[in-house]
């Protein structure tokens, strides 16, 4: 009896274990499905949470430091109350220079786009020349090394004197500021083409044009984009500074205008825009570089 009882006990016993096993496996499977989402969230959290904490800490310290009534700079809470319209309505346009920050940034960006395009084309061309020709290198490199140390704004009076107008002067300042890193990095890239690739080209008897497109261009692409990234950053620096002096529409002039109107809160809001746009520009050029390098000429 006890034997059968044990057997009876033993027999029903396994079924509960099996479902238990199945249940025990279930939690392992769902993580494979929702696990991806959890991983993505975890990854996003890793990227977002630390800077968010940093920003909160900085804002907190800032609030405490500038909270007093006689502080020189407004506290974050004061910025919010002073400049709420500016923060919340970037797209308004009341004509003239009374526009939302978005339009100021767009104007500045369009200047950067024109000036930087010129410097990219000319810079890559000169870089290839200086990298490929020993004589061009000897003749031009010392001049480049001196000119590249001239600060962007030092070019402004000269370009104003030569070009008489604000708009082309601003474009010239962007051009002359961002061209040096493009030239120098392109030249380094051309000089650093591995001898093996050159030998392959010589054994195959590639013509100069074939060499340019099949060896030189793909081999130097990473260097060129390093130069372009540095260049776009510098041209963004240059446009803000030169717009301050030249006036009109543009984020640089906006900052100067608000300073004259003693609206310090607006300046801080504009600085956040400037920083974010500069960051986006850098990432944008880096992204293009990655796409071009991966796609290759194939």
């Amino acid at each position: 009896m006890s034997m059968t009882a044990q057997r009876l006990d033993a027999d029903p016993a396994p079924p509960p274990i099996k479902p238990a096993g199945a249940v025990a496996q279930l939690p392992e499977r769902p993580p494979a499905l929702s696990g991806k989402i959890a991983d993505a969230l975890g990854g996003a959290a890793k990227v977002i949470i630390p800077p968010a904490i940093t920003i909160l800490v900085i804002l907190g310290l800032w609030q405490v430091a500038a909270g007093g009534s006689n502080a020189g700079l407004p506290a974050p809470s004061a910025i919010w109350t002073d400049s709420r319209d500016l923060i919340l309505h970037p797209f308004y346009d009341h004509g003239g220079v009374d526009k939302g920050l978005f339009w100021h940034v767009v104007t500045s960006l369009s200047r950067v786009a024109i000036g930087f395009s010129f410097s990219a084309v000319v810079g890559i061309g000169l870089g290839v020349l200086v990298g490929a020709s020993k004589w061009a290198h000897r003749g031009l490199d010392p001049i480049f090394q001196v000119l590249r140390t001239v600060p962007p704004l030092a070019w402004l009076p000269l370009s104003l004197a030569a070009l008489h107008q604000a708009q082309p002067s601003a474009l010239f300042v962007i051009f002359i500021t961002s061209i040096w890193p493009i030239i120098i990095n392109t030249a380094v890239g051309v000089r650093n083409i591995p001898q093996d690739y050159v030998n392959v080209a010589r054994v195959l008897r590639l013509s100069p044009i074939e060499y340019f497109f099949k060896i030189l261009a793909p081999a130097t692409t990473p260097y060129v984009f390093t130069g372009l990234r540095i260049g776009v950053g510098m041209s963004w620096l240059a446009i803000i500074a030169s717009e301050m002096l030249l006036g009109g529409v543009g984020i640089g002039f906006f900052i100067w205008d608000q300073y004259n109107a003693s609206r310090i809160s607006d300046i801080i809001v504009a600085l956040v825009w400037v920083g974010l746009v500069g960051f986006a520009l850098d990432r944008f050029v880096a992204l293009i570089g990655r796409v071009v390098a991966r796609g290759g000429p194939a």
Binding site: G296, P297, A298
Partner: peptide, 9 residues
Amino acid sequence: NHSLLPWLS
């Protein structure tokens, strides 16, 4: 060192 062009298949 083989000297294949890395950007080509």
